[in-house]
Design a protein around this nucleic acid. Structure first.
Lengths: 259, 259
DNA sequence: CCAGTATTTATCCAACGGGTTAATTTCCTC
DNA sequence: GAGGAAATTAACCCGTTGGATAAATACTGG
């Protein structure tokens, strides 16, 4: 049933017909069956593994599918990375590395405190939108009670710069009078992540429950506006226009949509 | 390796030694090997399945383990419920039924709007704390892109009463002047769920990242206070004392804990 | 151009795991 | 108390799957 034909194909076929030089040199006999490319192979394996683990979880992931989608022989996985769990941990570490790296690129120091918070929410939201596999991987890892993460000194040493960024921004905001209250930066960090993460990670079930597509453009825009308004209203004490659709105006039917 | 010895034991052993009546009646020969109990059996199967799916996800769950933990023969699962996916869907539907039932028991109509919101957050938080399997099941279902939920007319007809509750509470709050702004009840519902869900569902990885136990009593209390303060501050415009530890006071070391 | 090493392919397999078949036992009812 | 349906057990089936082995092929340094 499962067609893994690609596993039987060499990863990079050099088409003999195109090998003009070889023909010119009258050494056409030798047709290379594959090229060496250890770095590229490793990258393709990790990318395929990321997709597979994100789509099916750790237990549901299939080593054969990873190999097939990486255009590699299954043996390559074990040669270049290790067994299934090693592969999974490598993917997880890569995912953390990537977000940490992008986080570092965000410069909030020179912005107004409220603007800085908005940028923070905007970044988090869009990063999650752009990297849905990251959400899935985190859920998978939490299902495993962070068993793998605990063993990874690599990830544990990768601190998010956001907590410190938030700390200074909130301090500045309180001093400037933009913010009314001092908030624990860790709690605020978790809350912002939560508002974005839950909506996107659970969009499938929520969409069924509410009977509408929460991932379509308008819904996403509405959500982002709501989150920014919620957090900024709490911090500044001033309410913005975009807090969410008014309760009174009956944009949607009074009860849930009939399904 | 995997010791499934319990599967070979009858689910309810009547100890012959204790069967005094049978001995008295001189019919001691007949020793019952098991009792009939279809309803009880079905319940034990579903409970064991819930734990198994919550702990390992759909793909990681093992039918043999479910049977063993239910004190049942594997064949019983198929006899009483169906195959693995049927079993999973039954568990999922049961989980939604349970939370919807408890939600209906929450009466917010007669409370002050701010107090009603606090009760709502408090309930959501404690329900998730008391039912960690529910969180895991939702994550599993979202990994499957809500494939099973979509087929369940049962769940789709179980509307949460919370959205309507929030709508009326917010309306009342705006009229009474307690709340400054009208919020979309669906967005607020999702936000409250998000603040609670993410923290608990991701507590394993977050605890590793931050190098401290986010599930211990003090951390949980701090989190609940923060969430209530955040949402109420946004709605009422007034800040409460419990918004979170002040930024200035150095309760924890300036950087992350060394691990 | 040759030897040795790095990389890739082609098979193989033993354990696992979901599901099934058939026989056995209990309990209800007439 | 006998007959039969319902509930339960025991044993088996067979495709899947992670992983291993060994052979083949490409590259590199001498």
């Amino acid at each position: 049933m499962n067609n893994l034909h690609s596993q039987t194909l060499p990863c990079v076929l050099q088409l003999a017909l195109c090998d003009y030089r070889a023909i010119d040199l009258a050494k056409a006999k030798r047709v290379q069956k594959w090229q060496r490319d250890p770095e590229g192979m490793r990258l393709r394996i990790l990318e395929a593994a990321k997709q597979e683990f994100a789509a099916h979880g750790l237990a549901g992931a299939r080593v054969d599918r990873i190999a097939a989608n990486a255009g590699a022989n299954k043996r390559m996985l074990y040669y270049h990375v290790g067994n299934k769990e090693d592969l999974y941990l490598a993917v997880l570490e890569g995912a953390y590395e990537k977000i940490r790296s992008e986080e570092r690129g965000l410069d909030l120091e020179h912005l107004d405190p409220p603007e800085a918070i908005e940028r923070l929410i905007d970044f988090t939201w869009n990063y999650f939108l752009r990297n849905p596999e990251f959400l899935a991987l985190l859920n998978t890892e939490n299902l495993a009670k962070a068993r793998h993460l605990k063993r990874s000194t690599k990830v544990k040493s990768m601190h998010s710069p956001f907590v410190e960024m938030i700390r200074t921004v909130v301090t500045r905001g309180v001093e400037s009078g933009d913010f009314r209250v001092a908030v624990d930066p860790v709690q605020l960090y978790i809350s912002i992540a939560a508002l974005c993460f839950f909506y996107l990670s659970n969009s499938a079930t929520l969409s069924v429950i509410f009977g509408r597509d929460l991932l379509k453009k308008e819904a996403r825009d509405e959500r982002l506006a709501h989150m920014v308004a919620l957090v900024l209203a709490a911090l500044t004490g001033k309410s913005t226009a975009d807090f969410g659709k008014a309760v009174g105006q009956d944009v949607r039917p009074p009860a849930h949509q009939p399904v």
